[in-house]
């Protein structure tokens, strides 16, 4: 069943077309990779999906409701969470607070109860606190909960971004180059974590990644973009052999070489 679907999506800035007539879908329970050379428009697709940009043409559906006119916060409420390519944590807040504030959409107590500190407010805070600890524990950051986020080492910052995204309890998680800048050991760990999220939390995942080892290692299906268009799609093995893909990455093959 389709969870997320882009139908004939186009996005242009002035004269520049970043994404053109793109069709893309993520099925329920899938772990899909989105690859493509630099500047292919992958992150732009994420920005479209999460409502940061509104498509200039076409439509985006998530569980059959259109996302194209929603704010990012509304998209988040529907159950789409993301991480960012150039880590965007709440740097001066503690690790714990980063995960706490991400549970914002599950808070039901209004501002008055917050100001007046009613009992239900304390109960809710307690729940948020427990959940945050649980998530941090789950991704293996419980030792760092009191640190400020910007003091964490790079790998842990990426982990925290995932933890923060998970705190919104998404159905679909969009990961933007989660392995960028990691060493091989950290990449192994990361792959395990992604697979665990997918398996244990039953979250569908779409990830952008340059590292082929990561993509080929965990994705069920891979989509390839170039110049804002989808050029290939299939299992990792199929995609690797696709002529168009090779061309996009390596340039045109010289005949009889």
């Amino acid at each position: 069943m389709n969870l997320l679907e882009l139908k004939n999506c186009t996005l242009s800035f002035g004269g520049l077309t970043a994404v053109s007539h793109l069709n893309l879908n993520v099925n329920e329970g899938e772990l899909v990779g989105l690859i493509g050379p630099n500047g292919a428009g992958k992150t732009t697709v994420f920005n479209l999906m999460t409502g940061i940009y509104a498509p200039s043409g076409g439509d985006i559906f998530f569980k059959d409701s259109s996302l194209s006119s929603l704010r990012p916060s509304q998209v988040c409420r529907l159950g789409v969470a993301r991480t960012f390519q150039n880590i965007r944590l709440f740097g001066n807040m503690s690790v714990l607070d980063n995960v706490r504030v991400a549970q914002y959409i599950y808070l039901n107590r209004g501002l008055w109860r917050t100001v007046l500190r009613t009992r239900s407010f304390y109960e809710e805070e307690e729940q948020v606190f427990k959940k945050a600890r649980e998530i941090l524990n789950w991704v293996g950051l419980s030792q760092d909960e009191a640190d400020e986020a910007h003091n964490l080492p790079y790998g842990k910052q990426r982990r925290l971004e995932m933890a923060r995204a998970l705190a919104t309890r998404p159905h679909l998680l969009l990961l933007d180059e989660p392995a960028a800048g990691m060493n091989p050991f950290e990449k192994e760990e990361l792959m395990k974590l992604i697979e665990r999220i997918h398996r244990e939390l039953k979250v569908s995942i779409l990830l952008i990644e340059h590292d082929m080892k990561v993509v080929m290692g965990i994705c069920h299906r891979v989509m390839v973009m170039d110049h804002g268009e989808m050029i290939a799609e299939g299992t990792p093995n199929e995609v690797q052999k696709n002529a168009k893909v090779i061309e996009a990455y390596l340039g045109q093959q010289i005949n009889n070489c």
Partner: peptide
């Protein structure tokens, strides 16, 4: 409070805050 930390989150990174469900 958790609700009020949304203010701080906006200060830290408005785009990320919006993507975490906060109506900035």
């Amino acid at each position: 409070s958790t609700k009020g930390r949304a203010f701080l989150a906006i200060r830290e990174d408005e785009v990320a805050a919006e993507c975490m469900g906060i109506h900035t």
